[in-house]
Design a protein around this nucleic acid. Structure first.
Length: 440
RNA sequence: UCCUCAGUAGCUCAAUGGUAGAGCAUUCGGCUGUUAACCGAAGGGUUGUAGGUUCGAGUCCUACCUGAGGAGCCA
């Protein structure tokens, strides 16, 4: 900490490159094992965990006793010599020469998350501390890689990031799932549930755009696939058809999975993810129409009838024999939002597509081609009982150089859960917001 | 919103309607290569809340509270 001493400060991740050197590492005590005259403090610094070794015979008595009596998650800086050691987790070990305790956790109020099992309620109440655990740390590192991969994909394919507002004046798709904000004087304002309508405006300005931000859904959903606040990336392309949307979605997924496999092997190992399942996800994805998917489901015993949307059981059934996502398109018009473009030959279906991930992870992308014809859009707004005046600017887009266009939304948390092989979406975001959980 | 399940020590869980227990954590002691270390000892309880049945309730009944997972809806 002081600038006077000359011991280089390194991270755990870098320690292997300093074998034979004396370095110092600043972190927290992950765990400690002791055996009379030898102690093994495991030091965690956010980049990894390194086992340290302190021998009573080679250290001042006070230092040895300080280390021996350390408590879990106390913060400290350890100085020592890095040594390759096969017996140590991580392959390297630090022979302790000195230590500075930054804050010692008192025994009277010990760190609550012990190395043994805990229930989900307890862990969620201690989410602010749970983040330090290996699996949680790994899942959030994968999330970071996914987000970087998404942004890199769009940035390098001609998309411009144009973020859309969080406060929105009207419902895009009905008010029942919106959070109302009581602050603005003149009109009711809601938290966004999608940036898509705004994306349709920005893509007419830039050609290809995307927005990336939090999304809010006031659904009374209580399942492992739902959060009330989640992150979504939504690209939108002018002069694009359903086929373009499918191609971009496929390329995006393949690209991001490649990044995760390349840069987050260690984290996937911590998560015990079967990476062969991810390595199998290559283009081309499976493609089928809603009609074909329906026939497949009915042949597998589902009771679904034409016109119904797929439930979670249907999605799992549909992908159980597949090793990569399936793109299902041409859904019945009545199960999709008002702005979807109808198929030319069959007005009862629309040019929407859902990407359903394998292994039961369900819909990770939903999108399609939007209506570009003014009169058709007006008709659909009326049919859905929506007030035309609330969509004035949106209708304008069909008056001034309207073109076929389309895009999709991808839920970041569902995608990360798939990458990590997690049972529950709540572990893919640092502080999940759910129906009955808004703390910490 | 509806359905199902669960609340016992700080944590994870036991306990046929008959004296409330174990492991981990904490404290004390032992151990020079531990891998969720191990060995010995100690402290730690209004069994979610309120009623009811019973000679007797952690256990059975009712209501409520809290949480979990599923349906619907969605990403």
């Amino acid at each position: 900490m002081s600038p006077e001493h000359s011991t280089p400060r390194v991270t755990v991740a870098e320690a292997g490159r300093h074998a034979g050197e004396t370095v110092e590492i600043a972190g927290w005590l992950y765990n400690l094992r002791r055996s009379g005259k030898i102690v093994f403090p495991q030091l965690r610094d956010g980049t990894g965990i390194i086992q340290c070794v302190a021998l009573k015979s080679s250290l001042p008595e006070q230092l040895f006793e300080t280390l021996r009596d350390l408590t879990q998650e106390s913060s400290l800086i350890i100085r020592g010599k890095v040594r390759a050691e096969q017996r140590a987790p991580g392959g390297y070990e630090l022979d302790v020469e000195g230590a500075e305790i930054v804050q010692r956790v008192p025994e009277s109020d010990p760190y609550p998350i012990t190395p043994k099992d805990h229930g989900i309620d307890f862990l969620m109440d201690h989410r602010h501390l749970w983040l330090r655990s290996r699996r949680q740390h790994a899942a959030l590192a994968v999330r970071h890689e996914v987000i970087r991969g998404i942004r890199d994909y769009f940035d390098s394919h001609g998309f411009v990031l144009v973020d859309t507002p969080i406060f929105t004046p009207s419902a895009c798709e009905g008010t029942s799932t919106l959070f109302e904000v009581n602050y603005f004087d003149d009109e009711k304002v809601y938290l966004t549930q999608s940036g898509q309508l705004y994306n349709e405006a920005t893509c007419a300005a830039f050609g290809k755009t995307y927005c990336f931000g939090p999304t809010f859904r006031a659904e009374k959903s209580k399942t492992r696939r739902h959060l009330t606040e989640f992150w979504m990336v939504e690209p939108e392309m002018a002069y694009a058809t359903l086929e373009d949307v499918k191609q971009v979605g496929e390329e995006l997924i393949v690209s991001v999975i490649g990044r995760v496999l390349e840069n987050r092997r260690e984290e996937l190992k911590v998560l015990e993810r079967d990476v062969t399942k991810l390595e199998a996800v290559k283009a081309p994805f499976h493609r089928m129409s809603y009609d074909e998917a329906l026939a497949k489901l009915q042949s597998k015993g589902s009771q679904i009838q034409w016109g119904g949307d797929f439930g979670n059981a249907d999605e799992t059934l549909l992908t159980e024999d597949l090793d990569r996502p399936v793109m299902v398109d041409r859904y019945p018009t009545n199960v999709k939002a008002f702005y979807f473009q109808p198929a030319e030959d069959r007005p009862e279906v629309v040019l929407g597509v859902d990407f359903i991930a394998p292994e039961g992870y369900g819909e990770v992308i939903g999108g399609g081609q939007r209506i570009h014809d003014l009169n058709l859009l007006l008709k659909r707004i009326d049919e859905h009982g929506l007030p035309r005046e609330a969509f004035g600017w949106y209708i304008d887009l069909r008056k001034f150089g309207s073109v076929p266009h389309g895009g999709f939304g991808m839920g970041v948390e569902r995608f990360v859960a798939w990458m990590c092989g997690l049972e529950h979406i709540r572990e893919t975001i640092a502080f999940p917001r759910m129906l009955y959980r808004t703390k910490p």
